[in-house]
Design a protein around this nucleic acid. Structure first.
Lengths: 135, 135
DNA sequence: TATTTTACCTATTGACACAGTAGGCAAATG
DNA sequence: CATTTGCCTACTGTGTCAATAGGTAAAATA
């Protein structure tokens, strides 16, 4: 299940994209517009900054701004960054310890295929797509 | 992320299916074979019994047995029962309160489509498929 | 009938994540 | 210098996960 972290992050990115491209948008505005607790959103946006998906500018007249064009962000990368992983089962997580059942596990192929399915879906939807209702 | 509850449940059902169809299999055997804590597995199997996916027979010579043929169980229903829900976001959960953003939410269609994708996948894989490596 | 084997039930635990909240420091602008 | 903004650390309450513990009920066998 995708938590509020991932969902709020997507909405935050969309909100930035919907404001005029080269304006910096204070977090307080977005928080109000999206009806999300400012303090909580702050915490989530910090992850986006660390991941270089947005840039934060301090001081008066500051705020946040996208570092790329909206069509260059996929939902997949936003979710993976904020949720930590998109793996559907623990053993498909990148930094998971080797599973001793791996060689003969009869369910692993099912999880793997689903993983591909999911990635194929979320990594081919962009922020621009969402805004333009193309999904 | 699918927890051990769902994953162990699938393995338990597969184990039952792999034993001769009309035998009742004591939980202790399956727990040993699958290397799962007996007590914990007990808790999970209780959900399967309540959901009528398996039948438990008490007493000497007792154990568990499938109530249908392996090809009549889908992975989807096992996961949905044991995990509580398969919804990828809270607002798609059956017993979720109505979301005030529903009417104009630009991400909802994305979640809905993914939900369909996922259900289409997991509700078309059966226990028999897993055993026969058909996935 | 007594014993053994099995399922079934309630309760508890430690660790961790979620969804926030609080308060202050750092940086930049007017 | 004051104001605005981002950034940082720390804390909290609630809930779930993944078990563990210790029993009771039911059914078969000796």
């Amino acid at each position: 299940m995708i938590s509020t972290k991932g969902r709020y992050a997507i909405r935050f990115m969309m909100d930035l994209a919907e404001q005029s491209q080269d304006k910096t948008v204070p977090l307080e505005e977005t928080a109000a517009r999206q009806d999300i607790s400012k303090k909580y959103l702050e915490m989530i946006v910090k992850i986006l900054v660390k991941g270089k998906l947005v840039k934060g500018i301090s001081g008066k007249g500051g705020g946040y701004r996208l570092t790329r064009k909206p069509e260059e962000y996929t939902v997949g990368e936003i979710l993976e960054l904020t949720e930590g992983t998109l793996a559907v089962v623990a053993c498909l997580n990148e930094d998971a310890e080797q599973c001793p059942r791996e060689a003969f596990c009869k369910t692993l192929p099912m999880w793997r295929k689903f993983d591909h399915l999911m990635r194929d879906y979320f990594f081919h939807i962009t922020i621009a797509d969402l805004i333009n209702g193309k999904v």
